[in-house]
Design a binder for these strands. Structure first.
Lengths: 182, 182
DNA sequence: GGACATGTAAAGCGATCGTTTTACATGGCA
DNA sequence: TGCCATGTAAAACGATCGCTTTACATGTCC
């Protein structure tokens, strides 16, 4: 595989399990077996690697969301994708938000990147809501988004089963909004 | 005020805005004007200060939840307290989860502490649900909890107005669960 | 076969980290 | 007055940080 891609994947795994600021470049490069020289050739700095990891992570998740979208239950399938994602990657909380909070005052690029990614994800949720409801409903879209973020955060200190509860809540709210009752 | 309390409050402010692992002890002590010697007298280590900050933060929030509980709308008032809390402290995401993710592999005490605190909070939410519904409903309690955690996380990259949307969602779900319809 | 791109290995850079230590100021109490 | 607890100021400790550099091993293309 491409060296750069392997570095990103390895570093992502380390960030996921060990956090962002408490780990040095050596531990970031250990999984891929790369040298620090190659790191700075490819990414310019440690922060550059962080940005690359966040971009790759967001793109991979959005791609998977698109690939696993269900026409019958476009809202509920959001949470199916989340469950499968956490089963393979582990429930460590949203990596983007974790990075944002740790670089809030240290790297404006990371903060701006994550905020843009969250806007993009929120719009994807809104499109699902529009498909499922037959019309746009920004209030419901926000509610589903909150359930999604809540499930992601809660799964890190609880059970992955909370995702099913979030799915039920989202469907119930959608049913109410569609006038079909609970 | 007590020196120890001032150190905790000052360090909490720095953790909130600058993250946990990317800040040195000097910047943690700057707001209170204390010396490193006093830090190690009181807390033993930097991690000891982190634990003290997390305990104080959780206790303060739980106390405020109890003080601001509304008998008429026990579920909805959860989100009123959250909104007021974020208006005074700023929306930086849940400090407990932020610490947990950054110390996940470095400090087992912090991980265990946060998980216990989250269990305690979750039970407080369940009690609110029981009061509002007239009976226990663990499913609804989890859903309200997820909305709460989601609003806390989302407010850090969005608008504090999402809290009102979470409140609406929680009340709608409670209405459905109580059989009173949407 | 020589030039070049791409990689690892490893030493070393100054800066900063958490922590300890020495020195000194202050205030309440016996 | 003398003592001790409690605090700040500041230097210094070794370790580790992000990053640079030197040296060397590959493979590929002309």
């Amino acid at each position: 595989m491409d060296t750069r891609t392997e570095m990103i994947k390895g570093a992502a795994r380390t960030f996921e399990t060990e956090g962002f600021r408490g780990v040095g470049v050596d531990r970031l490069l250990a999984p891929s077996g790369s040298s620090t020289r190659t790191l700075y050739k490819h990414f310019g700095s440690r922060d550059g690697l962080v940005v690359a990891v966040l971009e790759a992570r967001h793109r991979a998740f959005m791609d998977r969301l698109g690939a696993e979208a269900d026409e019958i239950d476009p809202i509920g399938s959001l949470f199916d994708t989340l469950r499968r994602w956490l089963e393979t990657h582990g429930a460590w909380g949203c990596m983007l938000l974790r990075a944002r909070s740790e670089y809030a005052s240290a790297n404006a690029e990371i903060v701006a990147l994550v905020e843009q990614q969250k806007r993009e994800f929120r719009e994807a949720v809104a499109r699902r809501v529009e498909i499922g409801l037959g019309r746009a409903d920004t209030g419901l879209a926000t509610q589903v988004w909150l359930l999604f973020e809540g499930a992601t955060a809660a799964a890190s200190v609880s059970d992955v089963a909370v995702i099913e509860e979030a799915k039920r809540a989202a469907r119930a709210l959608a049913a109410v909004a569609s006038g079909r009752g609970p």
